[in-house]
Design a protein around this nucleic acid. Structure first.
Length: 688
DNA sequence: GCAAGGTC
């Protein structure tokens, strides 16, 4: 196709103004609804819009850039119940770019005879378009267009039956904003004011429907990890000779006490023989994975390159803005047939590493490749895929993310891999069954394109049923239980997803926010709660328990659903929330604010503890210990009984020394163990 | 300054 000169832009006197949620959507809508000729691309202040003709009328397709308005207030202090909508660029320093979008829509609104809200067909899209029409246009001359995907057929169908404004959906969306604002701003202010009252110091603290349950989850993991007392257990291993020069170490049993393990090992040494009782060979097809949604991309980037989910998302967003990949904030694992996979492949084939794979795909599919779709779907967007536009110079992380997206897209169009596995059961000393497994890859299939999920397999030497084998050695090893895992940034984002809080676009951002607030910190990619995070979670749990529960989101969903179905009114729902908040916020101010503020100020180091913990610098709570070391002390004492049973009457001293040395021991328990060893802490126990 | 939600 030759490069055509762009026609001069002009604006008709009267037109229908179509408002899209984002410029990319605006362009596609314009292309799909125009009669005959291509729409005219215009731009003002770098913001594009399109002019076109459709059934003897002029249409102008303009664009928002997500929310252009937000809630704000002029009042200080809490409780605060009055707020209003204001242009986002005035109230959110991170949203300055929305100003030019708003001013272009303001200009375009002047000549519009009809306004069409063509934002994504969801609750937020209804609000985005409505607020533009309300502040810049006229809701009395407005329509809503409903499409579920940005495809020509869906868009054309939707524009041929414009509906009235979807008032119930708008009301539900407005209510969502108001409820989140009321809860979030009020409780955040309550926290900040309590600290100020207790310490006369200012600090930014926050709480909200999504961030606070997420904080609580990280706090619970931190506590479980730091309070963990590992128990000992015992493993009996044997070294079996499978063939000439092929020896394998195999676990026979694990036991709770040393005595049991030793007697198993003795029995094996007395009859050091094994026999192959069965050999099973199986062939398994491993189907290709579906193309990426955002969560899958974040998982893989974390697993393969150690990138945290927010980092991955920001790289993917840049690749999207550069036109290299499709919209990344999607939950979909599907590539609809409307996406021209062949032409994307032909473009990508110009990139050296992909060329042979693409050639292979086109050959095996006879030029008609079809991506294998996953189950997850998204109403507004397909799975993440390369656009076919070739990248220029990318930095290393961008190159890696782009490569993941391309390879995953390619893999989804390839054949299953075939993996052969062998499973053998041995009977050791006529008494103990153990399983061996091995295998190899018979056909690489899609692993060629996407090697990151290729299993690492070890081949077993050939074994036949009935073969007798020698047991060369039998050993007992004692181990300590592994500690419960802390979250990673990724697992926290996944936890949010499985709990149904936050959205594709916000989860990673909210985890980052908890770090920025100083509630969470990271060591070796593991997320732990700081003292401030522990204190905030504690205070919220005690005085605003609704806000740390994922149930608040469920409750909101029910309310919003009722509004959407016309069974409840926004004003009533919001008023009830205000009344409830008014009560709990006044109770907090009247009765608990001093206590809460003092606790938070101590966690922040603004107030010195009146009496220090014997083990750390925190405030003493019981028996001379802070609340965390007191709990750790109790865990340590409770754990001793079981240790004595398993390790034939180990002394308390040796027990404590083992805990102090083990990597599995929770850090608070370790602190207590060390304090006992060096005499800072005298255990009050019946055992000494 | 504080939420959660959308997106350049």
């Amino acid at each position: 196709m030759g490069r055509s000169r762009r026609a001069r832009c002009w604006l008709p006197g009267r037109y229908v103004l179509v408002i899209a949620e984002k410029p990319k959507a605006a362009r596609r809508i314009a292309e799909y609804i125009a009669d005959g000729s291509r729409p005219l691309r215009c731009s003002m202040n770098g913001v594009p819009f399109w002019v076109l003709r459709r059934s003897d009328a002029y249409y102008v397709v303009g664009s928002a850039a997500g929310h252009l308005y937000g809630l704000t207030t002029d009042e200080r202090g809490f409780p605060v119940f009055s707020y209003y909508w204001a242009p986002l660029w005035r109230i959110d320093p991170g949203a300055k770019y929305t100003r030019k979008y708003l001013s272009v829509l303001e200009f375009l609104a002047k000549g519009a005879v009809l306004f069409v809200n063509a934002c994504d067909y969801d609750i937020e899209g209804s609000v985005i378009g409505f607020l533009v029409i309300r502040f810049l246009g006229d809701p009395g001359r407005a329509r809503r267009v409903k499409f579920s995907a940005l495809t020509p057929s869906d868009i054309r169908r939707a524009f041929s039956s414009l509906g009235p404004l979807d008032w119930d959906m708008i009301e539900a969306g407005l209510a969502r904003h108001e409820l989140d604002w009321l809860w979030g701003i009020n409780v955040s202010r309550a926290l900040m004011e309590s600290v100020k009252k207790a310490s006369r110091r200012r600090v930014v603290l926050s709480a909200g429907r999504v961030q606070s349950p997420t904080l609580r989850e990280a706090v619970e993991r931190t506590k479980r990890r730091n309070l963990f007392v590992p128990l000992p257990y015992f493993t009996v291993y044997v070294l079996v000779e499978l063939g000439p020069g092929a020896r394998k170490r195999v676990t026979v049993v694990t036991t709770k006490t040393r005595g049991e393990a030793l007697s198993v090992a003795r029995a094996i040494r007395a009859r050091p023989k094994a026999i192959v009782v069965s050999v099973d060979a199986s062939r398994r097809e491993v189907p290709p994975p579906p193309p990426f949604n955002l969560g899958d991309l974040q998982t893989e980037a974390s697993r393969i390159y150690g990138y945290d989910p927010h980092y991955t998302q920001s790289i993917a967003e840049q690749l999207y803005l550069d036109g290299l990949i499709s919209y990344p904030r999607t939950n979909s694992q599907k590539i609809p047939p409307t996406i021209d996979a062949v032409s994307i492949l032909r473009q990508l084939a110009r990139l050296e590493p992909y060329a042979p794979i693409i050639e292979h795909i086109l050959r095996i599919s006879r030029g008609k490749p079809r991506p294998r779709n996953g189950v997850k779907d998204d109403p507004a967007h397909p799975a993440i895929h390369p656009t076919g536009i070739l990248p220029g110079k990318l930095d290393k992380p961008a190159k890696r993310i782009y490569d993941l997206v391309v390879r995953r897209f390619l893999a989804s169009m390839m054949k299953s891999a075939i993996v052969s596995r062998t499973r053998a059961t041995l009977l050791i000393s006529n008494k103990y069954h153990v399983e061996l497994s091995g295998g190899y890859i018979e056909d690489e299939g899609w692993f060629r394109a996407y090697p990151f999920l290729r299993p690492r397999l070890e081949e077993l030497p050939p074994l036949r049923q009935g073969t007798r084998l020698r047991v060369l050695r039998a050993e007992v090893r004692s181990s300590l239980q592994k500690a419960p895992e802390l979250h990673t940034k990724l697992s926290l984002v996944k936890w949010m997803e499985s709990s149904g809080i936050g959205t594709e676009a916000t989860r990673a951002r909210i985890v980052k926010l908890l770090f920025d607030r100083g509630y969470l910190a990271e060591a070796r990619r593991k997320v732990y709660a700081t003292d401030l995070g522990l204190a905030v979670a504690e205070i919220l749990e005690r005085y605003f328990p609704q806000l740390v529960s994922v149930e608040l989101t469920r409750h909101f969903e029910q309310l919003l659903n009722s509004i959407r179905l016309g069974r409840a009114k926004r004003s009533k729902v919001v008023d009830e929330a205000k009344q409830f908040l008014d009560k709990i916020l006044r109770d907090f101010r009247d009765s608990y604010m001093d206590e809460a503020g003092t606790e938070l100020a101590k966690a922040l180091g603004f107030i010195k503890p009146s009496k220090k913990c014997l083990v750390c610098d925190r405030e003493a709570y019981k028996e001379g210990l802070c609340r965390y070391h007191y709990d750790a002390y109790r865990s340590l004492v409770e754990g001793y009984e079981e240790w004595r049973r398993r390790l034939d009457n180990i002394s308390f001293r040796s027990y404590v020394e083992r805990l102090a040395r083990s990597a599995s021991t929770g850090s608070w328990v370790k602190d207590v163990a060390r304090a006992i060893i060096d005499g800072r802490l005298k255990p009050m126990l019946p055992y000494e």
